[in-house]
Design a protein around this nucleic acid. Structure first.
Length: 681
DNA sequence: TTGTCCCATGTTTTT
DNA sequence: CATGGGACAA
């Protein structure tokens, strides 16, 4: 029997509830991962075969962390339980069952960027932004609304347009045997729904299901889970309604709020003991989240003692803010704090710029989490497209990406014409080029048709190498297509080339370690991979609050606590979700928390005056009105610059209403000017 | 076909 | 400010 003495009472409760639906409300820092992994180990120790369990997470990072911790607890010879992301599960499922809906299991998984490219290639005339079309389509798909219904339901013209594009998109995916991220959940659901026998078999197979971060599940994931557990309802979901911060991308907080009504005899276990933060920090978090109405309700209790008071820092502008934070961080590091115990969080990525400058000035190395993902960089995606074409030359989608990269003298017109001819001939682009040499010579310039001929020959050549050795393929690719050479003459060449090399290395490693897998498997696995796990343990971290979920730091700074920035106000913004975001931010801190706001910021090309965030007051860390009590960083004697009058020196400072008026000496002429019109130099 | 310049635009992000 | 996309010239 699994040893549970390391767990507190409620954690043990959660672990021991094996049968039936269980909701574990796990507050921030309450030992959630420990509880889930212990529960998994406990299930196995009861004699439940590992293959009959299924544990689902949202990110690969969470999945691997859990796997690691669970494996440490269970006996070594045990067959590993299935523990993966929702999407990986969908991928595995489709590999086995996609043929039931008349598709081949050699499908290719496309990412968001691919999706947008496809959509862009359709919408020749619409003014609708591609991103918006993409997210609407995603919404339709995850709500199981097919294009026809979408069209019928569309009242506005723009939604009719979207419905049409949606239809075209679905046809495109099917005819090219592509699968997008939504399909990884939608298609398994559709298959299960149309095949009761299979549904029963699958449900029977996964006798014990656990879901992590349940507050982030969407409608479709809920439905899928219902299918998976319908014969037994042994479903254990773990989450925190106060940490639901992905509503904007379809997460449905109702899933967790109404879990006890959706299933019969739900057992609820609350984990409210917090092992992470001091009482002061938790009090602020509790006070803040208290202001939300739509929540189950729980109060975190600290085990770490009172701690230091939360500090509220105010600055004149973002540069001063960055400077002060950099100096504080420097002091912490000099006093012996390890840099990896320090982090700075922000609500929107745009705020990172000034922060980075401030850290650079103090020569503090930092590690920015998030940003452009490795596998999403243009140069890496180019190489991936080459691999896809080599694996399957009829992959028109990937051919289109690389056909003129490196530049082969093919223009938009030539390519379009060729695609159309290929389409009319019912051939793939590759087939068309190989079989219709004479037609191409008529359609394209001499240079272009020669280039095309060489292109398909090279592909065929590499395919022949691949049959003998996948490993040697890389050299042949680089030799034939000179992708690195191409990027050599582009901006950021050094970085791009090293990314390509890194990717080549990854591919070689994969081939070595999985000799039985083919290129397709590698590519599909890649599509589901993100690379945020490489947090550099040597440096301090800076990241968005979203990216900080699940992490913790001894010393934490949160910047940009101003109305409009945090809470962020805009269309589609939800004040309760903003508040939950604030809750997530605060609960990342273990020992010391500093909240910072600035009287003004330079954003979207203009300087805006700001008032401090209502969250400061709601968290009880800042008394007084929301109207920002202005300060000025100008001193008598400062050199300042005015757009018209040029450089001058401050001789007098006074207050006019809530503004500051400076008397400035511009080479002998004294003028009264409002502080916001001059810059310090 | 490709390179350059100007204008519009501007959350959060995983799979 | 900084980036991307469209228009236009070479």
């Amino acid at each position: 029997m699994q040893d549970l003495t390391m767990l507190n009472e409620s954690q043990q409760d959660a672990v021991k509830c094996v049968d039936g639906p269980v909701l574990i409300l796990a507050g921030a820092g309450s030992g959630k991962t420990k509880t889930i992994t212990s529960r998994l180990a406990y299930l196995l120790s009861l004699g439940i075969p590992p293959a009959n369990t299924l544990t689902l997470t949202f990110t690969n990072k969470a999945a691997s962390e859990m796997r690691e911790r669970a494996m440490a607890m269970i006996e070594e010879h045990t067959y590993p339980p299935l523990l993966c992301t929702f999407h990986k599960f969908g991928l595995l499922f489709l590999k086995f069952h996609i043929e039931k809906i008349g598709r081949k299991n050699s499908f290719v998984v496309i990412d968001t960027d691919d999706k947008k490219r496809i959509l862009k290639s359709f919408s020749t005339s619409t003014e609708l932004p591609t991103g918006m079309i993409a997210s609407e389509i995603s919404r339709y798909k995850t709500s199981l609304i097919d294009p026809k219904v979408a069209w019928e339901k569309a009242e506005q013209k723009s939604y009719q347009v979207i419905a049409k594009i949606y239809e075209q998109y679905e046809d495109y995916l099917e005819s090219n045997n592509l699968v997008d991220f939504d399909d990884l959940l939608v298609l398994p659901y559709k298959i299960l729904e149309s095949d009761d026998a299979l549904c029963e078999e699958v449900s029977h197979r996964y006798q014990y299901i656990m879901v992590d971060e349940y507050q982030d599940t969407n409608e479709l994931q809920y439905k899928l889970l219902r299918k998976l557990c319908f014969t037994h309802n042994n479903l254990c979901v773990v989450g925190d309604d106060d940490q639901s911060i992905y509503g904007w991308r379809g997460a449905n907080i109702k899933n967790i709020l109404e879990f006890h009504e959706s299933f019969d005899n739900v057992k609820i276990v609350k984990l409210e003991k917090n092992y992470r933060s001091t009482t002061q920090i938790l009090k602020a978090a509790n006070d803040l989240i208290e202001h939300n109405r739509g929540r189950i309700g729980k109060v975190l209790e600290s085990t770490k003692g009172d701690g230091k008071a939360i500090e509220v820092m105010d600055s004149h502008d973002e540069n001063q803010e960055a400077h002060s934070i950099a100096k504080r961080i420097k002091k912490l590091i000099l006093s012996g704090v390890s840099p990896n115990e320090i982090a700075v969080l922000y609500r929107i990525n745009a705020l990172s710029r000034s922060l980075e400058e401030g850290l650079n000035k103090e020569q503090i190395p930092y590690n920015m989490v998030g940003g452009v993902k490795f596998y999403e960089r243009a140069e890496v995606k180019d190489v991936i497209s080459y691999l896809r074409v080599i694996a399957n030359p009829h992959d028109d989608f990937s051919i289109k990406r690389i056909i003129n990269r490196p530049k082969r003298g093919l223009g938009k017109v030539t390519i379009e014409r060729m695609i159309k001819s290929a389409y009319d001939n019912r051939q793939s682009i590759y087939e068309y080029i190989t079989c219709n040499e004479s037609a191409i010579e008529k359609e394209a310039t001499k240079k272009a048709s020669l280039a095309l001929k060489e292109f398909v020959q090279n592909i065929a050549y590499i395919r022949s190498i691949q049959e003998n050795s996948t490993y040697d393929m890389i050299d042949a690719i680089e030799e034939s297509f000179a992708i690195k050479e191409y990027y050599n003459n582009q901006p950021d060449s050094l970085e791009r080339i090293s990314n390509i090399d890194e990717f080549y290395g990854l591919f070689r490693d994969y081939v070595k370690q999985n000799p039985q897998m083919n290129v397709d498997d590698f590519l599909n696995e890649l599509a589901l991979q993100s690379d945020q796990d490489q947090i550099d343990s040597e440096n301090i971290s800076i990241m968005s609050i979203h990216a900080s979920k699940g992490l913790e730091f001894e010393y934490l700074f949160v910047i940009g606590l101003e109305e409009g920035f945090f809470p962020l106000i805009g269309d589609g913004s939800d004040i309760e979700e903003e508040r939950r975001l604030g809750y997530v931010a605060i609960t990342r801190a273990k020992q010391e928390l500093t909240l910072s706001f600035s009287a003004s910021r330079f954003y979207k090309g203009r300087r805006t005056e700001l008032t401090k965030s209502r969250f400061l007051k709601e968290a009880g860390v800042c008394e007084g009105s929301l109207i920002f009590e202005k300060t000025t960083s100008f001193k008598k004697g400062d050199l300042v610059k005015h757009k018209i009058f040029g450089i001058g020196r401050v001789t007098e400072i006074s207050k006019v209403g809530r503004e500051f008026k400076l008397q400035i000496n511009f080479s002998g002429t004294r003028r009264d000017i409002l502080a916001s019109f001059v810059e310090k130099i």
